[in-house]
Amino acid sequence: MNSFELNKIFGAVLGVLLFVVGMSVLSDMLFTPEPAGVAGYALPMPEGVETEVAEAAPAEEPLPVLLASADVGRGEAAVRKCASCHSFDQGGANGVGPNLYDVVGGPKAHLDNFGYSGALAERGAAGEVWGYDELYGFLANPRQYLPGTSMAFAGIRSGQERADIITYLASITENPPPLPEAAAAEPGAETDAAAAQ
Rank of each mutant, 00 (worst) to 15 (best):
A184I: 01
S87K: 05
A56W: 03
A68Q: 15
E52L: 11
E161Y: 02
P64K: 13
F138T: 06
C85M: 10
T32V: 14
L6K: 08
D71R: 08
A196L: 15
L100E: 05
A57K: 12
E50M: 08
D192G: 11
E52Y: 13
N2M: 03
A36G: 01
D192I: 09
S87R: 07
V49S: 03
P58H: 05
V38S: 10
A189K: 07
F88K: 06
G137A: 10
Q197P: 04
V104S: 00
P176F: 12
M151T: 05
D112Q: 13
P178D: 08
Q144R: 04
I165Y: 04
E174T: 15
A152S: 09
V20Q: 02
G48L: 10
E61R: 09
S24N: 12
P142S: 03
V65H: 04
A42K: 02
E122Y: 03
H86P: 02
G106Y: 08
I9D: 00
T191Q: 15
F88M: 07
T167S: 13
A121N: 03
R157H: 05
R74G: 01
S117P: 09
L146W: 00
W130N: 08
N7C: 01
V25Q: 05
Q144F: 03
S117I: 04
P107T: 14
G40H: 12
D133H: 05
T32W: 10
F153D: 08
D102A: 08
I172S: 08
V20E: 07
K108W: 00
P33I: 02
P176N: 11
Q144V: 04
Y145P: 00
G75W: 11
G37R: 15
M29I: 09
E34P: 01
S27W: 12
A154V: 13
L43Y: 02
A194R: 09
A42V: 14
A184E: 12
S117V: 09
R162A: 06
M1D: 05
A121E: 14
M29W: 10
A83W: 07
G118F: 03
F4L: 10
Y101F: 12
P142R: 02
N141V: 00
G97Q: 04
D164G: 00
G127Y: 00
F153N: 07
V129C: 00
G95Q: 07
G75I: 09
G124H: 11
E52N: 03
S171Y: 11
L63I: 06
F10I: 06
A78T: 14
G105K: 12
G159T: 03
E174P: 02
F31A: 01
A70N: 12
A185Q: 02
L67P: 08
S171D: 11
A193R: 14
G22H: 12
S84I: 03
L63V: 09
M23L: 15
N7I: 12
G131H: 03
A195S: 13
R80E: 15
K81S: 08
V103P: 07
G106K: 15
V49L: 14
G48M: 00
E34V: 08
G92F: 10
A93P: 01
V13W: 02
P58K: 14
Y41W: 11
P187S: 05
L66S: 04
K81M: 13
Y41A: 15
A68I: 04
P98E: 09
L179T: 06
N99T: 04
A182G: 04
Q160W: 05
R74C: 01
A39P: 13
